[in-house]
Amino acid sequence: MYDIISAIILGIVEGLTEFLPVSSTGHLILVGDLLGFEGDTATTFKIVIQLGAVLAVLVLYWKRYMSILKDLLTFNFRASNKLNAIHMGIAMVPALIIYLIFKDYIKQYLFGPGPVLIGLIIGGILMIIAARVKRKVTAENTDDITYKQALGIGLFQCFALWPGFSRSGSTISGGLLLGTSQKAAADFTFIIAVPVMFGATILDMYDSRELLTGDALMLFLIGFIAAFVVAMLAVVTFLNLIKRLKLEWFAFYRFAVAVIFFIFVM
């Protein structure tokens, strides 16, 4: 019963933090540490339930995904001068390659409170730099994003493989430094979230297939549902929030979480 309660709590945490640049994975690791929910199964659980929250993005952006899929099937990539599957593909490749090479190291050494606190702080510094460095905005919305900018954002996404950095925080920071508006960077971040997280979840579940027993699958399902439901309730509000608030505010929150956890828990 305690594991079920922990799964629900972590699902709620995931649903509330996935859409903010505060690192949902980092929060899951820290809260999981407080709950004593740790081990190989817990590590896989924390990856899998993120897909529940990310699927809320699929619901929100389903028209955009259908448009991208239609263009892909008809090989109509740049003729319509809009975001397409090539943008998504080149943005996903860098992190995918790094993950495949270092996934065992990441799960063994970085899924702990200490690395998360480091990630929260360094990621917060990156966000402050991105928010304050002045760049000419060349992409006001996602359809203005170039292939070069998409690749650059994909490279910044590699930072998110370190729990605590935040995938949205890294990619939005990268977008700002590369000349996109914060709105365009946020939209692009969440559009590529579905294939990225789906791929990461499938790979991790395959690698951890021996852990997928009946009890573990039940916990995964409970956490998945909790994350999806909470994310569906929060997605629109939080996405509007991230597009309007300066990144510094989220960075300050990250610093506060890191300091509080370090003082009172570590």
Rank of each mutant, 00 (worst) to 15 (best):
Gly179Leu: 15
Phe264Arg: 00
Phe220Met: 08
Ile9Lys: 12
Ile129Lys: 05
Leu110Asp: 10
Gly15Lys: 12
Lys183Met: 03
Leu60Ser: 02
Ile49Tyr: 05
Thr74Glu: 13
Ala231His: 09
Tyr2Val: 14
Leu83Arg: 12
Ala231Phe: 14
Leu96Met: 15
Gly164Arg: 08
Ile192Ser: 05
Ala7Asp: 05
Leu34Ile: 14
Met1Leu: 06
Lys243Thr: 15
Asn141Val: 05
Ser67Arg: 06
Val54Ser: 13
Arg244Ser: 14
Leu117Ala: 08
Gly123Thr: 01
Met218Thr: 07
Leu58Gly: 15
Ser166Pro: 02
Thr237Ser: 11
Ser170Asn: 12
Gly174Asn: 01
Leu212Asn: 14
Lys103Ala: 11
Gly164Val: 08
Ile121Ala: 08
Met218Gly: 09
Gly36Lys: 06
Thr237Pro: 00
Val259Ser: 13
Phe165Gly: 04
Leu10Tyr: 09
Ile97Gln: 10
Lys243Asp: 12
Leu69Trp: 11
Leu176Tyr: 02
Leu247Trp: 10
Glu14Gly: 03
Leu10Trp: 01
Phe250Asn: 06
Gln149Lys: 10
Lys82Arg: 15
Leu55Gln: 09
Lys63His: 06
Ala139Glu: 07
Thr189Asn: 13
Trp162Gly: 11
Tyr109Phe: 13
Pro195His: 01
Thr44Tyr: 04
Met232Asp: 03
Gln157Cys: 06
Leu20Met: 13
Thr142Lys: 15
Ala42Phe: 01
Ala139Met: 04
Glu248Trp: 13
Leu151Tyr: 03
Phe19Asn: 14
Phe188Ile: 04
Tyr253Asn: 04
Thr171Arg: 04
Val93Ser: 14
Phe102Ser: 15
Leu120Glu: 04
Thr201Cys: 13
Pro94Gly: 02
Ile98Val: 15
Thr25Ala: 07
Cys158Phe: 12
Ser80Trp: 06
Ile192Asp: 00
Thr17Ser: 14
Gly11Cys: 01
Met1Cys: 04
Asp204Pro: 00
Val31Gln: 03
Tyr99Glu: 14
Asp40Gly: 11
Ile98His: 05
Lys134Met: 05
Ile202Asp: 10
Arg64Lys: 13
Arg244Trp: 01
Ile129Arg: 12
Ile263Thr: 12
Ile263Tyr: 10
Gly154Leu: 01
Phe19Ile: 09
Phe159Thr: 10
Leu96Asn: 00
Lys246Glu: 01
Leu73Gly: 10
Leu176Phe: 03
Ile9Glu: 02
Val48Gly: 11
Asn141Arg: 10
Met92Thr: 14
Val93Phe: 01
Leu58Gln: 07
Arg254Asn: 12
Met205Cys: 10
Met66His: 08
Asp143His: 07
Glu38Tyr: 10
Leu155Met: 11
Met66Asp: 07
Lys246Phe: 00
Thr171Trp: 06
Val116Tyr: 02
Phe250Tyr: 14
Ser170Pro: 14
Val236Asn: 11
Gly114Asn: 12
Phe198Arg: 00
Leu151Pro: 07
Gly175Cys: 11
Met218Lys: 08
Asp204Val: 01
Ser23His: 11
Leu83Cys: 11
Ile5Phe: 13
Lys107Glu: 15
Leu55Gly: 08
Ile263Pro: 04
Arg254Ala: 09
Leu219Gly: 08
